[in-house]
């Protein structure tokens, strides 16, 4: 009796959600399918021209770039991150927390600042090149450029990969591994046949948690790519802040959303454990 009634206390938030979550997205959808002066509602008319614009080669390339770079950085994060997660998970409890904390602490420094610090490290006259020079080695010139953007993505999103994998690995019952060994599996077989399959949920949420922010970033590419390798995020930012082409920006946003929804649907096919909480937290 009292129960159903208490659902009503959620109503104010439902209204809030409608105004600040649903309406803005509908507006974006609306602008993506119209053209004309955005400040004059009467002037707007239905059009798919901004979607057609997305299909122009120059923009398709940007979108392609975003997905390729985000994909590569996700893969690198997985390759680097999985062993890290495994090493942390296998450390004894006392040191494990210390390791985990050491791993998470950098997140607490503003990520723009950390990215900025990479600029000073990587720039042509930056610290790394000075070091190389001092050692008599050739300079590296990756910034501004794709490599630097990749590095920035891996740097910023690596913890998103490690954490979920670590969480899953640390929950695997040690007896399962012992049982596998007991049944004659050597450590490689045990890993491939037992540990890896059991950690799939962690891998899946790790991939989602890295790929999502990587594909939509505009800060990393702006700072480390020096505008040479614009990503879909940069494009959206430009449309809303400098070129003021909301229609095009909206179409790009819708396309980004759809592509992300599709990749998430694919991922959740592979496993059903939403990364929800962890993602933004870190």
């Amino acid at each position: 009796m009292q129960q159903r009634g208490r659902g009503r206390i959620a109503y104010p938030y439902i209204i809030w959600m409608a105004i600040f979550i649903v309406v803005p997205l509908i507006l974006i959808l609306f602008y993506s399918f119209t053209e004309g002066d955005i400040h004059n509602l009467k002037d707007l008319k239905f059009s798919v021209s901004s979607y057609k614009k997305v299909l122009e080669p120059i923009y398709l390339k940007v979108i392609g770039n975003s997905f390729v770079l985000a994909g590569i950085s996700t893969l690198i994060c997985l390759i680097i991150g999985y062993p890290v997660a495994m090493i942390i998970a296998n450390t004894d409890v006392k040191h494990r927390n210390l390791l985990l904390m050491l791993f998470l602490v950098p997140i607490w420094m503003n990520f723009l600042l950390r990215t900025y610090a990479w600029m000073s490290l990587l720039s042509p006259n930056g610290l790394i090149n000075r070091l190389l020079l001092w050692l008599g080695l050739p300079k590296i010139e990756i910034m501004p450029g794709k490599t630097a953007v990749l590095l920035g993505m891996v740097y910023n999103f690596l913890p998103f990969m490690v954490l979920p994998i670590y969480t899953v690995l640390s929950k695997i019952d040690k007896h399962v591994i012992e049982a596998a060994n007991d049944l004659g599996g050597n450590s490689v077989i045990t890993f491939i046949r037992v540990i890896l399959p059991l950690s799939v949920p962690g891998i899946v949420s790790g991939i989602t948690m890295v790929f999502l922010p990587a594909v939509s970033t505009f800060v990393i590419s702006g700072l480390l790519g020096g505008g040479k390798t614009p990503l879909i995020g940069d494009l959206i930012e430009q449309q809303f802040l400098s070129s003021r082409d909301w229609h095009f920006g909206s179409s790009l946003s819708i396309i980004l959303m759809i592509m992300i929804l599709i990749s998430m649907a694919v991922m959740s096919r592979i496993d059903k454990s939403p990364p929800e909480e962890e993602r933004r937290k870190i």
Partner: peptide
């Protein structure tokens, strides 16, 4: 239904949430 809508800002890229809100305010 409510939880799915509630999850939108969590799952949507920040940039989409950002421009969507900006669009709402300016409109």
């Amino acid at each position: 239904v409510v939880l799915n809508i509630n999850n939108l800002p969590v799952l949507n890229p920040d940039i989409v949430t950002g421009v969507a809100l900006m669009t709402l305010f300016i409109s």
